[in-house]
Design a protein around this nucleic acid. Structure first.
Lengths: 232, 232
DNA sequence: GTCCAATGGCTCGCTGTCATACCTTTGGAG
DNA sequence: CTCCAAAGGTATGACAGCGAGCCATTGGAC
């Protein structure tokens, strides 16, 4: 029975070091900590992540070796994200089932988030945030599009007001991004994507939950089709 | 910024022992391994969960001490789920934000799952499974309703065909069940719930994705309102 | 009746992870 | 100019978790 596979799946995805590296890379690649910005201080970050400072430092060392960050000592020092991020490591071949799994989960989470966000009374800060991310995404070039795009989608997830949902969207998005890194990013797709973003955000700001969901579903279908085509 | 809270959340929910206990209790409380049934053999289960046999045994020992399971040695032995499960431990007071978080995530995942399940071409085995769980749930008494109910909802999630989604639904459901254990289970609610189940399953079997989603949303709203009322 | 395969029960040494404490560097406050 | 707070860098001893191997028990196959 497949249900048992779901419940008896691995308790841990890896050791503490690996999971920490994963999380930090996620924060950087999803644009939550942008190039030039500083990570929280080691003592604070270790506390938030629930790991020891030793383990966190090992993870940071790994990010340094891979060109993600640089650390500076002294007061007002810290660990800063590099301006130029390393190219993503190509993942191995993936099966059609894995692809479908990742896309299904993403679709469920993100369409749900868009609907929830539209159904809530958003504060002025949240509305401004959505607008800012939308604009940033529209101005992004091919080099930083994925990051700005993720950042906008995360802003939408956050507007749904559920921290667990936000975290789940971040994870699902990271999974899909790893696949997207393997296919070309074409300017026409990019322009189309921006139009759809505007539509989604507009529906959310106007509080039209149904329309927001449908617009997000259509948007996600676009990249899903691309992925299915290229990775089939 | 709240996004950082989501990404810099704890890497691990607890130590390996605690997380393993959690997972096993989940399998039992959600009815995936029913009373009288046997857990996989220790060597196999440890492999599936990605932990050492030593740690798994500690977790099983904890379940024994709490009256969840009993172990028998020898060939055809194993660890069996007890006929009578212990009462759920009441959790501490929870905030309105935590409640909303859990309910939002559940709603997103389960309505999405219902929609996906309806949109797929289900095999005969899956259709039979849905029918069987539905019937089982309708016949359940107050003592085992929560377990049979969860089992049906998991069957729906599984019918969506995404293992990650199934796992996410199981986690979300476990969270909500812990809250539901604190409020009374009234026969009228139970009957109403069964009617809604029939509707949801019927829409899924007929392939009406939109109707399935709406029926599931309405169903979930019912318990959500109860929870908000009792825990407010 | 004997055997044996499958299961839970147990032990030992190794490695990863932790908490804690202390050292070094840096740049602004005074 | 001096001081010092805040940051990264380092060291140590304790403990959790692991892999591997072996033991003890059981009930069916032969």
């Amino acid at each position: 029975m497949a249900l048992r596979d779901a419940l008896f799946r691995p308790v841990r995805a890896g050791n503490a070091f690996e999971e920490t590296v994963e999380r930090l890379v996620q924060a950087i690649r999803l644009g939550v900590v942008a190039p030039g910005e500083r990570l929280p201080a080691e003592r604070e970050l270790a506390g938030r992540l629930g790991i020891s400072r030793v383990t966190l430092r090992e993870a940071i060392k790994s990010l340094q070796d891979n060109g993600y960050v640089e650390s500076r000592r002294g007061r007002y020092g810290g660990t800063f994200v590099n301006a130029e991020l390393p190219a993503a490591q190509p993942v191995g071949r993936i099966s059609g089932e894995e692809l479908a799994d990742a896309l299904t989960l993403r679709a469920v989470l993100e369409t749900g988030a868009a609907e929830c966000a539209a159904g809530r009374a958003l504060g002025p800060g949240e509305r401004r945030e959505l607008g800012a991310r939308l604009a940033e995404c529209a101005q992004a070039g091919r080099a930083d599009y994925r990051r700005k795009d993720s950042r906008l989608h995360l802003a939408i997830a956050e507007a749904a007001g559920s921290p667990s949902l936000t975290a789940a969207v971040a994870d699902a998005r990271m999974r899909v991004n790893e696949l997207l890194d393997r296919i070309p990013l074409l300017p026409p797709n990019l322009a189309h994507s921006n139009e759809q973003h505007e539509l989604v955000v507009s529906h959310i700001l106007h509080g039209d939950a149904d329309a927001a969901r449908r617009a997000m579903a259509e948007h996600l279908d676009g990249t899903a089709s691309l992925l299915r085509g290229f990775l089939a």
